[in-house]
């Protein structure tokens, strides 16, 4: 059970949060993107074993999205970042 440091609310228990996937850059304008490029955006993820950047939402709390750097093996959370916060 993760102890997730919400950048706004501080450390909170895992059940308050919702995992939001790896950040993926939306290719625009979409109409000009190839099928392959669009499929990659929709479905391809790094799925890193180890250091992993991912989005979470404090859905059961402040409702804010933020970036998490987490180890997918040890589940150590290296840090959490507000949107736009320099990485």
């Amino acid at each position: 059970m993760l102890l997730m440091p919400c950048p706004w609310c501080g450390p909170r228990d895992e059940p308050e949060f919702q995992f939001g996937g790896e950040p993926a850059t939306r290719p625009i304008p979409a109409a000009e993107v190839s099928d392959q490029r669009w499929a990659d955006y929709l479905y391809l993820r790094t799925n890193e074993k180890g250091f992993h950047r991912e989005l979470w939402c404090h859905a059961g709390g402040c409702g804010q999205w933020f970036l998490v750097e987490r180890d997918t093996v040890t589940h150590v959370i290296h840090r959490t970042l507000k949107p736009g916060e320099p990485a």
Binding site: C57, A59, Q64, W65
Partner: peptide, 13 residues
Amino acid sequence: LAMLRAWHQTEYP
């Protein structure tokens, strides 16, 4: 509601 929040915060902040 979750979808609106997600798009607003992550794509159109």
